[in-house]
């Protein structure tokens, strides 16, 4: 079943040039992408390619001066502002980029509990913390007291307790050490195994190829290629698009990926 269907999405910003004339700055142009339930789709791109805006556009959280064209369907119905206000947090969850997205004056345990939409918030939070190997005492900490890895796991927890069908993960891995990255990716795989679709926005092509079913490559606001993750093997001989292949070959560590053996899952 198609959970999320993005058709011909364009986003542009109204800006004022040096002479105070209004101009529009396109940031995403005619992007089409769909996600099945239980599927992980990675959107890979360099910074400035419009990745985060895609996440915010799906959630209807773009700034006022942004204009959106095209259609976004969720479970077969258009994602209008009214529909979104019911779906946000319960069926669609965001995993934001950094600890900046946590309320600085509220303990993280409380923030995770407030994100829970199914079952008993406290019990849910405790079980998620256990499975993410976050100590129970971490619930009483404020965001500024968390280490980078802990903060990341807390952010992922907010999506995990929500019981959302679609999880949009906006750059969840940068700044983490390899062990934590692997753990985060494992959590994503668990979530997708339980039926959630994950839109994994990242610039980490290796991580994307490791857990995603399909990898979409975004370049300067345009989707240049969507390839199955299995094509990301060897020197990328199976990749049809030259830009994608160039990205893959530019990776210093793709030997490492091969060694981990992600191919086993495909």
């Amino acid at each position: 079943m198609t959970l999320l269907d993005i058709r011909d999405l364009s986003i542009s910003f109204a800006m004022y040039d040096r002479w105070l004339r209004q101009t529009t700055q396109p940031v995403i142009q005619s992007l089409s992408l769909s996600l099945e339930a239980g599927e992980i789709v990675a959107v890979v791109g360099a910074s400035g390619s419009g990745k985060s805006l895609l996440a915010h556009a799906i959630l209807g959280l773009l700034p006022q001066n942004a204009s959106v064209a095209g259609e976004i369907m969720f479970e077969g119905k258009p994602l209008t502002a009214a529909a979104l206000s019911k779906l946000r947090g319960s069926k669609i969850a965001l995993i934001p980029q950094s600890v900046q997205y946590l309320d600085p004056l509220m303990t993280v345990g409380k923030q995770v509990e407030q994100a829970a939409r199914i079952g008993q918030p406290k019990a849910l939070r405790q079980s998620i913390f256990r499975s993410f190997r976050l100590p129970e005492g971490a619930a009483k900490l404020y965001p500024f007291q968390l280490s980078g890895g802990m903060a990341r796991r807390v952010l992922v927890s907010t999506a995990a307790v929500s019981g959302a069908r679609l999880i949009i993960a906006d750059e969840p891995t940068p700044g983490l050490d390899e062990a934590v990255i692997q753990e985060t990716l494992r959590i994503f795989q668990d979530l997708s195994a339980s039926g959630a679709a994950i839109l994994f926005i990242t610039h980490d092509l290796a991580a994307a190829a490791q857990i995603a079913d399909r990898v979409a490559v975004l370049r300067e606001g345009r989707l240049v290629d969507i390839s199955p993750a299995s094509s990301f093997a060897g020197m990328g001989e199976a990749l049809s698009h030259p830009y994608t292949r160039a990205l893959w070959q530019a990776l210093p560590q793709h030997q490492f990926i091969e060694a981990v053996g992600w191919n086993d899952e495909a």
């Binding site: 915010h56 959630l59 959280l61 206000s85 019911k86 779906l87 946000r88 947090g89 319960s90 969850a93 965001l94 934001p96 950094s98 900046q100 997205y101 946590l102 309320d103 600085p104 407030q114 994100a115 907010t158 929500s162």
Partner: peptide, 11 residues
């Protein structure tokens, strides 16, 4: 950002 995230959670 934290209010943006709170809105993303439906608040």
């Amino acid at each position: 950002d934290y209010v943006r995230f709170a809105r993303a959670r439906g608040e």
